[in-house]
Nucleic acid binder design. Structure first.
Lengths: 117, 117
DNA sequence: CTCGACCCTGGAGTACTGTCCAGGGTCAAG
DNA sequence: CTTGACCCTGGACAGTACTCCAGGGTCGAG
């Protein structure tokens, strides 16, 4: 798949895809004419990247775990494990948000929201 | 309170506090010698700033709502309202995380985590 | 052969959020 | 009066994540 299609299917810009390739987040073969050729897995991979990013990971961190995965024979299994870790992280974040919410509820109810807690 | 104390009590660096003042996130009176003099409310305000930042607001956005609040006679009431909005936002974020989690659970369970969904 | 849609590279520029530093002033204690 | 801890300004620099552009190549349709 060429860059335009990948960009469209992931909602990223071509420049962003090129940027991701430069930073090692993504690898592409090259067609004889020099055009990038992405495998179909690039689409879900980029979705994963966006997920991890939303969870607060930097692109560098994501690239690192991606590199570990790359070429591993049990890549699917490892990625499943990664996803399970992300799920645990989501549970943590959710708990943090719940705590924050409780704090805000309390502050909103009190007459003095900025009082030191 | 001078900048050093505020920095220590909020865990920020002096430079960060000065940066926040420059960007309008924070206002300070000046002592006759030119030193910044922060009111005690600056401490919980900065805590709020960090909270809002963690929820994905840019400093500019935070400064804007802060400016709306500033000088209002019903500042406490308005801030309570803001906090209620933040709570709604937290609920949204929590829901997003739940959806993401469900997706990841499904992917992790399937043998092929990167298959297009 | 030309046109338009697509692709390439290299490099500059942007926004945000800091962080560091030089050069210099203030002030209380000893 | 000196010393050390504190404060000031202005400006350079950094890391992250893009975004845009100039200048130019590729390719299928008409």
């Amino acid at each position: 798949m060429r860059i335009g299609e990948l960009a469209e299917r992931t909602g990223l810009s071509r420049d962003t895809v090129r940027f991701y390739e430069r930073t090692g987040l993504l690898t592409a073969r090259r067609l004889p004419n020099g055009y990038r050729d992405f495998p179909p897995e690039a689409v879900p991979w980029l979705r994963y990247v966006r997920t991890a990013q939303a969870l607060g990971f930097s692109l560098a961190e994501i690239a690192r775990t991606g590199a570990e995965l790359d070429g591993a024979p049990d890549a699917a299994e490892r990625l499943s494990e990664l996803l399970r870790q992300k799920i645990a992280l989501i549970d943590e974040r959710t708990a943090e948000l719940a705590a924050l919410r409780a704090d805000l509820v309390e502050r909103a109810a009190s007459g003095c929201p900025l009082a030191p807690s």
